[in-house]
Design a protein around this nucleic acid. Structure first.
Length: 487
DNA sequence: TCTGGGGTCCTCAAACTC
DNA sequence: TCTGGAGTTTGAGGACCC
């Protein structure tokens, strides 16, 4: 669960085991993605501004997230889950629901518990990390069980005991109750799940609206009929950047929007999608957030079309005062494009025309290029200088040798000293700790950032290649996975 | 010293269609 | 032919989740 990234880092870096570790954006506007249990003791928690975390835990290790590394571990775990059942619903990199009944691996509470324990052992053996398991008859309760099981445990909620268990709990335990709804309910005198159930459906619908009120009432009675869904269709694709310093220059804002549109389309295409609705998101200097959207006549994955739509949307937004975040998204996804349809229609028309030998010649009045950015006004203006740049977005991806960066926590290899990781960098120096997941805590050395003997490298496996003995490295608190179904 | 990124779903109002 | 009403689509914002 929530300490997943930190646990993975502790497993990879022996010197961090048992220490406070905070993973998140390290820029001036970064927030905590995950704090290790040691860091939580200082009051650090996820979504906290990084500056605040540093004040609370000045001696913690601060690392940039390495998503590709976490994704590899996640895939190993998901593979184990799929061995249990075809119905596996990933919630994130480190959490998933599994329908054990559908997998036919558990028929009662005893067999479910056995499956859960075996799974936890398998996760530890394969990844070197511990996971927590919640077992119950529905998703909501399985999730609550897994929260209770953390770290490194298993909780089974026996059928028939659910309401008793939920009654005294805070409404915030229920999925869908965040700070705003929690506050709303508190003002109505409702703080526990028991009080929620007592309030009755009508009252909850009145307070929270039909969908939310109804769903919450059912959950308060421990009723959750949501099935475990293995395949979920993506509904939208978006990219956004928060800038270290607010952008005031309108030309620069336009340039950034164009850049985001390009990135968004890259992601869209990589996923094999196209989309009809283009969304521009602007967070202004005062944190107020605006969205503007435009729905096209048909889906597109053309960078030019998305860029132009985003630029048009930007024209309706006042950015004087500065913007701290810009985003571009595409929704209304399809797996074909308007251009495909035009091409198809065109081919068909041509075929028919050839057959009938009656040429009409209308060059298919496509809306496609419509309006268009006039030769890209932003082109000049090289906006020189410091470029506040998006706040450290953390990708581990290949770094051009010319401008080598050394993000904290990333793996490196030195020609003489071997494998290690970046402990920090700045002022032309990079500090590396030389250790591996299987080694003892290593020593630290400092190099020039352009040292030719030092290069970025891929993460090392947390668990030594299988062999006789198989020492099972490491620990690190939990990587939870709720597992419902079962009896 | 504030508040990331990538999503989902819901609500509401206005515009549009039937 | 006009009109009112219901239903749908679009656009914007908010809440929530990990």
């Amino acid at each position: 669960m929530d300490a997943f990234y930190a646990s993975a880092e502790q497993a990879a870096k022996p010197s961090l085991r048992g220490k406070a570790v905070v993973v998140g954006g390290l820029g001036p506007r970064g927030v905590v993605a995950t704090a290790s249990y040691e860091a939580r003791r200082f009051g650090v928690h996820s979504a906290m501004p990084m500056g605040q975390a540093r004040r609370l835990a000045p001696n913690a290790a601060y690392l940039v997230p390495r998503f590709s590394f976490y994704r590899d571990i996640s895939e190993q775990v998901m593979r184990l889950l799929r061995e249990l059942s075809p119905l596996v619903e990933p919630l994130s990199l480190d959490e998933a629901f599994v329908d054990l009944e559908a997998g036919g691996v558990a028929s009662d509470e005893a067999s479910a518990r056995a499956v859960g324990e075996r799974l936890r052992a398998d996760i530890l053996r394969v990844t070197g990390l511990t996971g927590s398991v919640g077992l119950a008859v529905c998703k909501m309760l399985a999730k609550i069980g897994s929260e209770q099981a953390k770290p490194d445990g298993l909780v089974l909620i026996p059928a028939g005991t659910e309401r008793k268990l939920l009654e005294p709990m805070s409404v915030r335990i229920l999925p869908g109750v965040g700070p705003a709804t929690g506050d709303h309910l508190r003002r109505a005198g409702i703080t526990t799940v028991g009080e929620l159930a007592e309030a009755g459906e009508d009252e909850l619908v009145r307070l929270l609206g039909k969908a939310h009120g109804g769903a919450l009432y059912a959950m308060a009675l421990a009723r959750d009929e949501r099935p475990v869904v293995a395949e979920r269709d993506t509904k939208s694709v978006s990219v956004e950047d928060t800038y270290d310093v607010d952008i005031h220059d309108r030309v620069r804002v336009r340039m950034e929007v164009a850049r985001l549109a390009e990135r968004c389309v890259q992601r869209l295409r990589a996923a094999g999608h196209s989309g009809r609705t283009i969304v521009l998101k602007v967070r202004r200097f005062d944190f107020s957030t605006l969205t503007r959207s435009e729905t096209l006549r048909g889906p597109t994955d053309d960078p030019g079309v998305v860029r132009e739509a985003a630029a048009r949307l930007l024209e309706s937004v006042d950015t004087t005062g500065g913007v701290r975040l810009l985003g571009v998204g595409v929704s209304g996804l399809a797996d074909y494009t308007q251009e495909d349809l035009f091409a198809q229609a065109q081919a068909k028309a041509e075929a028919e025309a050839a057959e009938a030998a009656g040429a009409d010649g209308d060059p298919g009045a496509a809306q496609e290029g419509g309006g268009g950015l006039p030769a890209e006004g932003a082109g000049g203006e090289s906006v020189g200088g410091v470029e506040p740049g998006p706040a450290e977005s953390g990708g581990a991806e290949p770094v051009p040798p010319a401008e080598r960066r050394w993000p904290s926590g990333h793996d490196v290899r030195h020609a003489v000293h071997g494998a290690g990781w970046v402990q920090g960098s700045g002022l032309g120096r990079v500090t590396v700790r030389f250790e591996t997941p299987q080694s003892v805590p290593g020593r630290v050395r400092t190099f020039r950032t352009d040292d030719p003997e030092l290069e970025p490298s891929d993460p090392l496996p947390l668990v030594a290649a299988p062999g006789p003995g198989e020492g099972a490295a490491v620990v690190g608190p939990e990587a939870g996975l709720p597992v419902p179904g079962a009896g």
